[in-house]
Design a protein around this nucleic acid. Structure first.
Lengths: 152, 152
DNA sequence: GGTGAAATCTACCTAGG
DNA sequence: CCTAGGTAGATTTCACC
């Protein structure tokens, strides 16, 4: 899809604050409100913008513990991967999961209310899975840079 | 802050789609549009909702390579940490950074256009920093579970 | 790039527990 | 007294010019 410098700037603005009016966007982009709105529609229709989400403060809603868990699989059979994917999909505390190169097979991002809940998740959900060989939890002590916009 | 079951459900809905009207929210919550809107305002004012962001499709905007980089520091002096924080803040390809327990000191989330750009970032930005001892890049082969809503 | 109709938000007001 | 629902003015979006 064709995307010029103005579109990049627009995406950057909308990642920071999606509730700006077309008029406000137009001022930043040096564009008329109608053109700014039209460009936004174009980016939505093209799928570059897949949706809009509220940013929720994890601490404020009682999710005080954040962790990254590296998962090593015992077997790499296709059905082992599939059943693990189902487990991941069914566990709400896992907010993201990636298939990685290198050392570990998967990396899971976790949000829990407390350390006890994190330990329960590891001991009673992850480790009991038949194809999980080993997990390595790393707790987030602080967020040095908050989840930010994509570099455009 | 006081948060009941309805507020949790509202946060869940707004994380999935922030552009729903108060009427649509009210239907899901079995509430009148005015009450749904009022609750949303309350959650914003209380800081539970810190803002709204457009979800941008990384692949679609040409950011085809995603990676997680574990950073091991040579020194743990306060000013080493501070200058590293400045480096992280100034690097747009680093979209998130966490201070971790365990093995590595920091975990960085990276978005790049290609592998060459990722290698440049490691070789020319991260490793030259005086207090960085070692980095370990792990490339994301696939996203098993997309960045999802917090478990409420 | 501008304009007007339609939809939506929000502040205020009223009713009920 | 606090929480829920309804109504009207003001803003914003979107299709058309």
């Amino acid at each position: 899809m064709a995307m010029d410098k103005t579109d990049s700037a627009l995406l950057r603005l909308l990642q920071q604050d999606a509730n700006q009016t077309a008029e406000s966007l137009g001022q930043h982009l040096r564009l008329s409100p109608s053109q700014a709105g039209r460009r936004r529609q174009r980016l939505e229709a093209a799928g570059l913008i897949s949706g809009y989400a509220a940013r929720v403060d994890a601490e404020a809603v009682g999710l005080g513990v954040q962790a990254m868990i590296q998962v090593h699989m015992a077997a790499h059979a296709p059905d082992a991967a599939q059943s693990f994917a189902a487990l991941v999909a069914a566990t709400p505390e896992i907010t993201s999961a990636w298939v990685m190169t290198g050392d570990a097979d998967y990396l899971l991002r976790i949000f829990c209310t407390d350390l006890a809940a994190l330990n329960r998740l590891v001991q009673e959900v992850l480790l009991p899975h038949s194809s999980v060989a080993r997990v390595q939890s790393q707790i987030v002590m602080a967020q040095l840079k908050p989840d930010g916009p994509l570099p455009l």
